[in-house]
Structures are given as C-alpha cells and as structure tokens.
Design a protein around this nucleic acid. Structure first.
Ligand SMILES: [Mn+2]
Ligand SMILES: [Mn+2]
Ligand SMILES: [Mn+2]
Ligand SMILES: [Mn+2]
Lengths: 217, 217
DNA sequence: GAATATTTTTAGACTTATCTAAAAATATTT
DNA sequence: AAATATTTTTAGATAAGTCTAAAAATATTC
C-alpha cells in the first residue's frame, strides 16, 4: 500500500527527473513539495525501503520500475480527472488543478479505466500535458518553447507549463488558448520579451509568460 | 477545516442517531467505525471543541446544527458518487460503496453540485437511500420493512439497508432488484423466514435477508 | 440499596508525517 | 589543497489519530 504522502513524493521525483530516471536532489524535492529537506530524507528512505526508489546517501534519488509505474498512475489519474472536470463538470482550466490534487489519490483501478473510457481515451489534459496509459507510457508530441522559435515562424499553442490559476487566467484575459495559431514576430533583447500574433491580435508577452508557452510547428 | 477522520465520525453519529439529533453512545460509534471507545472519546472532544457536536461526559453525543450540515454533506457526496459510479462508469451496486468511502472526502462544493447536475439531480442512491440536498434536507419515501407487511399484501422494493457486497450479490443472484414488485405470501414462525413472490418467481427468504428489505406500498 | 457488571474516560504509549537545530558530507572558492 | 559555503543527514520534538490497560462513572442485578 502506497500512502497519500508517498504518492506525492513519487510524483515529485517523477516530474523533477524525467520520469524519475535522472537523480533528483533532496532540496529540489523539498521545494517542489513545499516541505523541508529533513522531511524529504525521511520519506526517501521509506520509499527505498518499499523498493519504490533507489537511494544512495548524498547522491539523490531515482525511481525503481515499480516506483515509476506508481508515479505514472498518479499522474494518469490527475490528468484524467482534470479532463473530466473540464469536459463533464463545466470547470475552467484554471479551476481543476487543486481538485485533481485530491482526486489523484483515489484508489480504484476500475474507476480510472472507466473514467478513461467515459472521456473517450483522451491523450492530453486541459493544459496540454500528456496522459500516461495503464502501463505508464505516453507519446510525446513534439513541442518547443516559444522562445526558441525564430521570428517569422508560426505554430500551434500545444502546452502550457505553468498550471497555476493566475497564469491561466492571464491567458484567458488575453485570449490565448490551447490550439491557437501563434506567429512569432519579434524578440526584444532589452527585456527578453516577445511580440506575437494570433488570428485575433498582435501582442507583446513578457519573458516570464513566454517561458511557459510551448508550440508545435 | 474538517479532517477526513472527523468527517467519518460525524457521519457515524449522523447515521446512528437519526441525523444526529438523538444521543449516540461511545461504544456504538466505536463499533460502527471499527475503532475503540477510547479513540471515540478523544474524537468526540475534538468535535465538541469545534462546535460540531454536543457532548456531556458519560451522556453520549449529538450533532450541532453545523455538525449536522457537515455530516449531511458527506452523506450527500457519498451517495452522489455512488450514483455516478453506477450511471456513468458501469459499476454494479455492490462495487460502489468502498470507492464512495474515499470520494466522499473530496473537498469542492462546485464539484458536488456540478456532479449533482450531471446526474440529473437524483433523489436516491443505488441502494434506495435518499440523497440530501445542499441544505442537508431530503424527503423520506415511506417504506416499511418487509417483515411488517401482512401476508397477502404487496409493494415495490424501495430500499436495502445492508449495502455490503455479499448481501447485494445475494440479491443479484436471486433476481431481486430495486423497483421489483414483491408480494408477501407467508411468514414462517419456526425460523422467522418469509415466502415472497415476484413477477418471475416464488421464493423463501431468511429473516436475516428480510430484515434488510424495505418496500413502499 | 449494596454488590456486581458494563460503559466510558483517563493515562500513557505508538505510528506517520512533519518540523528545527546541529552535525556531517559534499561542492565551491580562493 | 585549505578555507568556506552549501547541501544533506541525523537527532530530537511535535501533532494527529490510534491503541492497551487501568480508573472512574453509570447501569443492572440480587
Ligand atoms: Mn494539474
Ligand atoms: Mn497530490
Ligand atoms: Mn454506500
Ligand atoms: Mn469515509
């Protein structure tokens, strides 16, 4: 049995070290999970004890195969619930994350898989993040950060990296949504901002905003 | 903030003392919740501290108005989730209870009320139990235990009191479902069993089974 | 109504998950 | 390579929720 708290740590390691394959530092986990390094050390030991993590003192932590699968299942549930909330319960994309944080810990394989079917086996959540399948696999859609796009080129907004409600409401306010066609017009070296053009407008976005926008070409 | 554990105690008191208005004993709660009397005493004190329960040492416990509302909300969520699992996710009525035990603790008023709407504002769960509204109110359908029906009379199976999977699968196996028309033919004093007749069959049910069947006339 | 049985509460211990402060190990700078 | 800074671990404390065993209160029986 994996506790709620253990699931949160597994998820953090999974997200910080590309599916848990790259060693993640104690401090990085503490920051992600908003706890203290000492708490992280304790929990990592417990995960290692349960064969969910590989841990060498002072060397950081990776996930074992069963840890990776457990983490992927949590992520799968999180993202499926987010789709459910938007598609079936009229939530907006900035309202779903906190509720999904709770729902991702519900234990019932039948529930997850029936939910998946009800939603028509979606491949991405409302923020453009991929939904792992039962085996924890997903196919990456090739998307690049908008800052790496040469001025003059265009693509489709495929993913937003920050899922906080403030950021998502900023996008709503400025009529930017997943699927929108975006053309990069100009990069401004002074403040690293970007001028972009959508079908409805031309606008300047700050570097902080641009860092979180990923487009597929 | 009401914790998961507090919610479970509130629900137990609510169920044991008709919506928490009748004083419930420490031992009764302990048995319902499968814990020990000493644990119950501790928790009751905490509920009283938070003004969710009225507690007088050695005199049992009732719910305050806010306690009653909190308990009713948990019951509302439990039963709405059960309807969801059956209606939308192909669960059978014997599979829903344990998952609903988890889902009932998810905190989001929007979620509950949107779920209610998605399901078409159901009034009863898959076991015939009434679903409280936002204010914690529900209208009782008049149903009586089948043992109190005079032989010769008939009614419709409206509610089953035991929601355990073993009991529900017994009913499935014997083709008894909510909504079925049942006629009481004979009461057998030797073992307090009952002979009943449905549209498809005549059968004898034990007293243990009969105690859990409620019909509306 | 006194003796006995049952229920309830208290006292103290344990587990999980967290924290602060100090010690130990590793990394960085000079 | 020493000195210094940073990161990580350990040690000990705390809070929530639970338990066992003993004490206190209430209920039942004779
Ligand atoms: Mn999310
Ligand atoms: Mn979580
Ligand atoms: Mn139930
Ligand atoms: Mn519960």
């Amino acid at each position: 049995m994996v506790t709620l708290s253990e699931e949160n740590y597994l998820k953090a390691i999974y997200h910080l070290g590309k599916q848990g394959s790259v060693a993640v530092s104690t401090n990085a986990i503490a920051e992600k999970i908003e706890s203290k390094a000492s708490s992280v050390t304790d929990m990592i030991k417990k995960l290692a004890e349960k064969d969910l993590a590989n841990y060498v003192k002072y060397q950081g932590v990776t996930l074992t195969e069963s840890g990776r699968l457990a983490a992927a299942l949590v992520v799968r549930k999180h993202r499926l619930w987010e789709v459910f909330l938007v598609e079936k319960l009229n939530f907006t994309w900035d309202e779903v994350h906190d509720v999904a944080e709770q729902l991702e810990h519900i234990k019932s394989l039948k529930l997850v898989n029936e939910l998946d079917a009800l939603l028509g086996f979606p491949t991405h959540d409302p923020h453009g993040d991929p939904i792992p399948d039962k085996e924890g696999n997903y196919t990456l859609i090739k998307s690049v950060n908008i800052l790496e796009v040469e001025p003059g080129n265009e693509g489709v907004l495929a993913q937003v990296k920050d899922s906080s409600d403030v950021f998502l409401r900023y996008l709503d306010k400025n009529n930017l949504a997943l699927g929108d066609k975006i053309k990069v017009l100009d990069f401004e070296p002074f403040d690293n901002s970007l001028t972009i053009e959508t079908s409805s407008q031309k606008m300047i976005i700050s570097n902080d905003v641009a860092k979180n926008l990923y487009i597929s070409l």
